[in-house]
């Protein structure tokens, strides 16, 4: 992808205007890690122009758990091991028998040695997060309209409107939602909505050392995500449920669910 060089003093601009006026996006921010061009130069942020999505390349994931760690720090997710907006699973597939999966503290503290003695055929890591489904069951079941799909294709929770009935948590096939222990409302991954609308990358993508996670937009021809989708065999999780997820996995086997 060709990258435009910014013509305005980036840092000052970022700090003074972009961060304080939500919706205004500058080209400087669009440069994020030199990977995504998320918005047009100097134009008002228009949600209708975007349809955010993510790609995850399982072959590249080293299971360092930096994504889960950064997510908790960026989004102030409770630190207890029962609350995650994103987490990393380890799959161990023995020569004989069922695949085994674990995710101690979401992978943040690394993974312990594989204890089982039987011979291992394959093993790999799978980062998980909200799939921001196009046909999201959580949005369908919310009785009051506190969880919804925004115009830029991100499923969000309105924390000052949620009644805390937890029907959405039951309806999510991916276990991506939890009840916030102090706010008492449903909570989940927002694709770091406060970052992406300013042209930055989600925190998990920002810190991923191997570029396992690719963030971008569907429908934009020149986007790292489109390149990812073009060149890799991608899968979505639990496709049979017709939730139409927007997190695409490259190298996800049948065991991954």
């Amino acid at each position: 992808m060709k990258q435009d060089k910014p013509c305005i003093p980036r840092r000052e601009f970022l700090q003074t205007s972009a961060k304080k006026i939500p919706g205004l996006v500058v080209a400087a921010a669009a440069l994020s890690t030199g990977k995504t061009l998320l918005a047009e130069e100097n134009s008002e942020y228009n949600p209708e122009d975007h349809n955010y999505a993510m790609g995850v390349d399982i072959h590249k994931c080293i299971g360092c758990g930096r994504c889960a760690d950064a997510c908790k720090k960026e989004n102030k997710v409770p630190l207890e091991p029962e609350f995650f907006r994103t987490w990393v699973e380890r799959y161990v597939i023995p020569v004989e028998g069922e695949a085994r999966v674990d995710s101690p503290n979401g992978g943040i503290d690394g993974f312990p040695e594989i204890k089982e003695k039987d011979e291992i055929l394959r093993s790999f890591f799978v980062p998980k997060l909200c799939n921001h489904c196009d046909n999201a069951p959580c949005v369908q079941v919310c009785p009051v309209g506190a969880t919804f799909k925004s115009r830029d294709g991100v499923v969000l929770v309105d924390e000052s409107y949620c009644v805390g009935c937890r029907y959405c948590i039951q309806a999510c096939p991916y276990g991506a939602r939890y009840l916030h222990p102090t706010k008492h409302v449903a909570d989940k991954c927002t694709f770091c909505y406060h970052r992406i609308t300013k042209g930055m990358l989600p925190a998990c993508v920002e810190v991923c050392p191997t570029h396992t996670r690719v963030f971008g937009e569907e429908g934009h021809r020149s986007s790292p995500l489109m390149r990812f989708l073009r060149f890799k065999d991608v899968n979505v999780l639990k496709a049979g449920l017709n939730t139409k997820p927007k997190v695409y996995y490259a190298g996800a086997n049948g065991e991954v669910r």
């Binding site: 939500p22 927002t190 406060h194 925190a203 920002e206």
Partner: peptide, 18 residues
């Protein structure tokens, strides 16, 4: 308005450009 509220959360990670 909820969209704006979510969008106005504080940022912790500055990003590599900065």
């Amino acid at each position: 308005d909820a969209v704006e509220e979510v969008a106005s959360h504080d940022i912790s990670y500055a990003g590599i450009q900065v």
